[in-house]
Simulated assay, not measured.
Amino acid sequence: MKKLILTVTFLAFYCVVIAQTDAEKARAKVGKAIELMDNGSIDESIVILEECEKLDPENYLYPYEIAFAYVKKKEYEKAIRILKKTLEYDNINSLVYQMLGNAYSYSGDEKRAIRTYEKGMKKFPNAGNLHLEKGNIFWFQEKYDEAVNNYRKGIEVDPMFASNYYRLALLYLSSSDKLTGLIYAEIFMNLERSSARTREISKLIYKTYKNAITLGKDESSMDFCEIVIDAKSLEDGGDLKLPLCAIFGKHFVLGMFGMEKVNSESIAKMRASFIERFFEEDYKQYSNVLFDYQKKLLDAGLLETYTRYILQMGDSKGFNEWAIANERKLNKFTDWYLDKENYMEVTQKNKFIN
């Protein structure tokens, strides 16, 4: 009886293997190809991907990955030929246009790259990645205003796509409008929580606060932005609405009183003080997703700990010393922050574009 059961089990397994489709065989192989590519064995990866393409010729994934392999090898013409054919597949996504545009850009044909991104935008109007890549071309051409406009447009159509915030943060944090840069930077850190770029931005945020705040016995000052009043709107009979820079300064400066050093501890207290005052008076007119998120953290008793987290790469020694002494606080924040219900969600209604 035992022998019969074993025989039946074997036959059932054999039938499942025989029934496996070519498409399933291709999907089983592709993981190994990606692993080889990531480890630098690009030619071996291409061989496997070409086998996958023969098994499942209707799937655009395999020629896309082959083209990506050629991009990594800097064989851009080969990549371009493959990607142009890949555009003819059904169910492609914006990444195909992105890589084709990038291949043109890397080969020195920036005009064709832009045309490719723009064609992709028509097919995928909500593709923030295509606006990013178009902006990057202007960035490298040092046409920063045009780069900013494209990154902003990327946020407008795809507010949860992190990379446009990253680029805008870098641009604004190197300008006189550091407040806008800080907002973009912190939104980015919440959308892309753990990466080399996140660590880079953490350092920049801390450095910006350190450089923008001057504390003295008799006089303290801050330099986050320049206050510009739109006089023309007043001449035309419009209502005066102060720029965000003025509102921020009005509330933030009050949190600086009594502070002796600019470090993670004092910055955390200043930021908490700002949010308390801001939500007492001005949040309805100037609300944005970041300030709303900080208020949520304040109400949970976690804003100062969150600020320590945001600044940790800029003040790693201070953060580590604080973390050892405040293990319970850090654990409470970590549990809250890792709960998906507490992830920042940027929508068309609450997105920040400045």
Rank of each mutant, 00 (worst) to 15 (best):
V8C: 12
G301L: 06
L173M: 10
E219K: 10
A28G: 15
L170Q: 10
N350H: 07
K207S: 12
Y106N: 04
K241N: 11
K203F: 04
N91E: 14
F257D: 15
A19R: 10
P63R: 02
K2N: 15
L338P: 03
G135H: 00
E341M: 06
E50C: 04
Y144F: 15
I213L: 05
K217D: 15
Y60E: 08
L49S: 09
F252K: 09
F333M: 00
E35A: 15
A147E: 08
A325C: 07
V96W: 00
D236C: 01
I227D: 08
A12G: 11
L242R: 07
A28Y: 14
I229R: 09
S194F: 09
N263R: 09
L303N: 04
L298C: 09
Y206V: 05
Y60A: 05
E304W: 00
Y293W: 12
H131Y: 15
I46Q: 10
I155H: 01
K119R: 02
A79P: 11
D282R: 11
I46T: 01
Q285L: 14
P159G: 07
W322F: 07
E345M: 12
G255V: 05
L95P: 07
L6M: 13
I80F: 02
Y209G: 04
C15T: 13
A212H: 02
A12K: 12
T116F: 05
N211L: 11
L61V: 15
G135R: 04
G154Q: 06
N39Q: 14
A162R: 03
L254E: 13
Y70K: 05
E345S: 12
E265G: 12
Y144D: 07
C225E: 12
A26L: 02
I310G: 00
L49N: 09
L290A: 00
K74Q: 12
G255C: 10
Q20D: 10
I66F: 06
L36K: 13
V17I: 15
I42P: 02
F257I: 14
V30I: 15
D335H: 04
D335A: 14
R271N: 14
N326S: 04
A300F: 05
G154R: 05
L311A: 00
Y117T: 06
Y89D: 06
Y70Q: 04
F248R: 08
R27F: 14
E321A: 11
M270G: 08
Y184W: 03
H251D: 02
Y309I: 09
F319I: 04
I92M: 01
L87Y: 06
K332Q: 12
G255P: 01
V228K: 13
S233P: 01
S176E: 14
E156R: 04
H251W: 04
